[in-house]
Design a protein around this nucleic acid. Sequence first.
DNA 1: TTCAGGTAATGACATTTGTCATCCCCGTAT
DNA 2: ATACGGGGATGACAAATGTCATTACCTGAA
Lengths: 201, 201
Amino acid sequence: MIRVLIADDEAMIRSALAALLRLEDDIEVVAECADGAQAVIMAGKLQPDICLLDLEMPELDGVQVADRLRSTGSATRCVVVTRHARPGVLRRALASGVLGFLPKSRSANEVAEVIRRVAAGARYIDPEIAADALSEERSPLTERELDVLRAGRRGESTVQIARALNLAAGTVRNYISAILAKLNVATRQQAVLLAEERGWI
Amino acid sequence: MIRVLIADDEAMIRSALAALLRLEDDIEVVAECADGAQAVIMAGKLQPDICLLDLEMPELDGVQVADRLRSTGSATRCVVVTRHARPGVLRRALASGVLGFLPKSRSANEVAEVIRRVAAGARYIDPEIAADALSEERSPLTERELDVLRAGRRGESTVQIARALNLAAGTVRNYISAILAKLNVATRQQAVLLAEERGWI
DNA sequence: TTCAGGTAATGACATTTGTCATCCCCGTAT
DNA sequence: ATACGGGGATGACAAATGTCATTACCTGAA
């Protein structure tokens, strides 16, 4: 019997996956969690074989949960599912010891198979994302430039960003100018959209 | 037998819901669609009793699909499920003839029950959202102002928005100025964020 | 009929952004 | 040692954006 913990903040998909996995006779769903913090606690208590973690969750995201579990020395193996499977995210996930990586664009009945493989000791990385990850370039922006972009992601003005980062307004303008040039877009908002899409911020 | 069409751009939840509904012996899943445009076509061909529509989809969103189906005189009844159930969205949905409204924060096994009720001629609106909708204020913006906001939601320039709507650039600036004043924010991006949060666009 | 409100446009103006050249400081790889 | 890149800053300039007053047309309610 493979003992599985499921964490996803969206109750509908969490319960749907749990119901489907319960139909498999070699899988037992031992916990359903609505956020990352809860997942860490329950995983510690129950020591499941597999944690099926959604990436997008409040408190702690799926990768952070995997990171915590690994650092506590837990033997639990983590599978991460995500809505927007960007190569950058895959890199983060692998660095945190995640063994399975599956975008939500795959069918639900593949989940059981991935769980079995990972439980058996193998790794499963969605082939499409893996291919992307090899080709797609990482962010061309420097750390500081990303800071500026993050600080301005909600349409904040130059001065507000400057205040938030303890910089001069002109410096912020320079950074933004560099960002726009590197990303080849015309406005901050487009830069933010692009960076969010690519998983850089 | 209740004949159901499912449309959701996320394959995992789409296939999971389909699989669960297939377990019910009074429900038959006749189609699975990955976007709104496809849903309209298939619904036209198959004339299902119920369309289970995700709100967030490319091409046409769930409410737009319901709108189209109604305007073609189809007898199909629409149930909309959504990730972010804002009162504004519920209002839009009801105006488009949607009969069932269910946030994804509900459990998957409630879906079958809602489908049965709607198929039987009743309406089902998630009680929590319904309560919110009564309290929350509607958009203070005019139709045209919303058009402008929508046209500029990706950081488009004034000229681009103007071209898209066949307006003079100055007119667009006026509209935006009015929007910012009404919403009491300083930049377009903040206006877009606020309007999206409130479900106005 | 009058009036309010939505739509559409101009022109003038102040501010904010984006661009560019130039400077300084620092750490590190050559 | 020195050249290079990143972080931080200034000043100047052009373009885009936001503000305001004013005008005009149309529609529906009082």
